[in-house]
Design a protein around this nucleic acid. Structure first.
Lengths: 182, 182
DNA sequence: ACCTGAACACCGTTCAAGT
DNA sequence: ACCTGAACACCGTTCAAGT
């Protein structure tokens, strides 16, 4: 990759992260290009679809997911508290910007999605928590990771689109947790 | 209302319902106007915001909701079956077209939404089911109707956006039901 | 009172010309 | 190999002119 291309790529991603946070995932790509100081064609060369840009924006986020799940697993306390704590963290993690929870959760089952690798990171993190609790015999039979991702992702999506605050979200996550635990 | 205005109004609503079903809630208003044989200005005169059009489209749907809840309440069988059956019906009811579950669920808490009256119908229906089960002492403490609407609406939203089939949705609804029941 | 349709603004997307 | 920016298509929204 040529030096100027690399520089443009990085600037676009940085600006996109900023603009997505300010205006949500529907933000104008034209504005992102302008703020990054490149022509619209340059943005399209690097990111043919909006989702490719999202994937790049989420790159640095992967580490945070892995740190968060490691921390959640060390939690001292009841299984219910551990699970609930992880769900709250999960919601925070996928709420990268407005529109993100919906986008991420609907890509969760799709192997052809441009953000597939990010979904896998998230699914694996979730899986570690579920398997940890399953070893304690705390999880009901027939519970699948993908299901859990979609349930918690659904809560995050509703919270995102309805602009709910965490106090309204926690009881919903508690219902999901209770439905999963024995 | 003048006769020609009435006629245009009705045709727009009828066409909108059709186009929303074909192409989802993001469909072009221009196309709706064209198919209804009116100018774009006419559509805007009757429906200043897209949500006003959605509200009109959902008008005839109100009766179906009330019929569905009445039928659900007569169900013979366990509380869990009754609740689960109602949830499946609820998901079907708000899945009027692509994009509808998200729109309806996020309007659920907002008293200023153009589709507020439709949300009230839905909330009231849900409330009847919850109260019915609460009389049996089957519902956990602290459960609110709005919460339940958002939880089931979240599942419907994920199903809608991820194009899931009913077999993938039912187990998710079962988790929510188990989390609400004692 | 209501309708029409031209006009404007905005945005995504492409591509020929340039370095 | 990569970038630029003009050009096109599409869509939401407004409004002057018409009936």
């Amino acid at each position: 990759m040529r030096a100027d291309a690399r520089r443009n790529y990085d600037r676009i991603v940085e600006v996109a992260r900023e603009v997505f946070r300010e205006q949500g995932y529907d933000a104008s790509l034209d504005e992102i290009a302008k703020r990054a100081g490149v022509g619209p064609g340059t943005l399209y060369r690097h990111f043919p679809k909006r989702e490719n840009l999202l994937d790049a924006v989420m790159q640095s986020w992967v580490d945070r997911v892995n740190e968060a799940v490691a921390k959640a697993l060390t939690h001292e306390g009841s299984d219910r508290e551990l699970l609930l704590g992880w769900f709250e963290e999960y919601v925070r993690l996928i709420s990268v910007h407005r529109g993100a929870p919906a986008k991420i959760t609907s890509a969760m089952g799709d192997p052809d999605s441009p953000i597939m690798t990010k979904c896998q990171v998230l699914a694996r993190a979730n899986d570690r928590v579920i398997e940890h609790l399953r070893e304690d015999g705390a999880i009901r039979d027939g519970v699948e990771t993908l299901q859990v991702c979609r349930l918690v992702g659904g809560v995050a999506t509703v919270a995102d689109q309805g602009d709910l605050d965490p106090d309204a979200v926690r009881p919903m996550l508690a219902v999901v947790a209770d439905g999963l635990l024995r």
